[in-house]
């Protein structure tokens, strides 16, 4: 088992639970959905699993070993996240090229220009896009760039938090296709958060249904 969460609990204030004793597991190469309305705790769960937020109680195991917030070293590279709003995932004053190169520096991954260019071409981005700032790129282009950026780190798990909900139909289909193709080649596990049943069915093989901070149902989906 790649990732196993047991009894994850998160409170933001003294009040009620945002997430209450949530269990979840995920195998290598598997695509698991987390489905729920806004406010159900989807994004909080994603942030706990990505090691971005500390839990109040509960444990998180990665390949059987207990891991804790904040993730360090190798784990920080192997678990990557893609967000809902692509324009907020890039520094507005940096060129696209600067943004895409940053993780190589942070994680000390050797950089290969030819491979970099090829990876970008696979998501439909070329030399002319690289000098532009995020303001001069469309939402679809930025989300494809965000995918290329996390994929360049060869992650074992991609946490995708509503990655297509802000995109138009054509860009949405392109992003879903890129995700399917990449997984076929690299067997990366996906944790796919969505409120859209059609998108969930299109990608996921199994899904957790979240309501008011608790998993109310776990179900196989025909993908």
């Amino acid at each position: 088992m790649l990732l196993e969460a047991s009894k994850l609990t998160k409170r933001y204030s003294a009040g009620g639970f945002t997430l209450h004793e949530t269990d979840l597991h995920l195998d290598a190469g598997e695509t698991v959905g987390i489905f729920g309305k806004s406010g159900s705790g989807k994004t909080t769960l994603a942030n706990l699993l990505a090691g971005i937020l500390p839990v109040n109680s509960g444990t998180l195991r990665w390949n059987g070993e207990i891991v804790r917030y904040p993730f360090r070293g190798e784990l920080r590279r192997t678990v990557q996240m893609v967000y809902q709003h692509p324009e907020e995932a890039f520094d507005p004053l940096w060129s696209l090229r600067q943004s895409l190169l940053e993780p190589y520096r942070i994680h000390k991954v050797p950089f290969d220009e030819a491979e970099f260019v090829q990876r970008l071409a696979q998501v439909g981005l070329y030399e002319e896009h690289l000098s532009r700032r995020p303001g001069a790129l469309s939402g679809g282009e930025l989300q494809r760039a965000a995918l290329a950026r996390v994929m360049s780190m060869a992650p074992k798990l991609l946490i995708l938090d509503e990655p297509v909900s802000m995109l138009d139909a054509v860009s949405r289909a392109q992003v879903l296709q890129i995700l399917r193709d990449y997984q076929r080649q690299h067997r990366t596990a996906y944790l796919f958060i969505t409120h859209d049943p059609a998108v969930m069915r299109c990608l996921c093989s199994r899904c957790y249904f979240l309501e008011n901070g608790s998993v109310v149902k776990e179900e196989k989906v025909g993908a």
């Binding site: 070329y126 054509v170 289909a173 392109q174 879903l176």
Partner: peptide, 22 residues
């Protein structure tokens, strides 16, 4: 291909990407 990208047609995506002005 645009219509096929809608959910009721399974989010199919046309090959490649649209060209730029250049």
């Amino acid at each position: 291909s645009m219509i096929r990208s809608l959910p009721e047609h399974g989010f199919q995506s046309a090959k490649g990407f649209a060209p730029s002005h250049r």
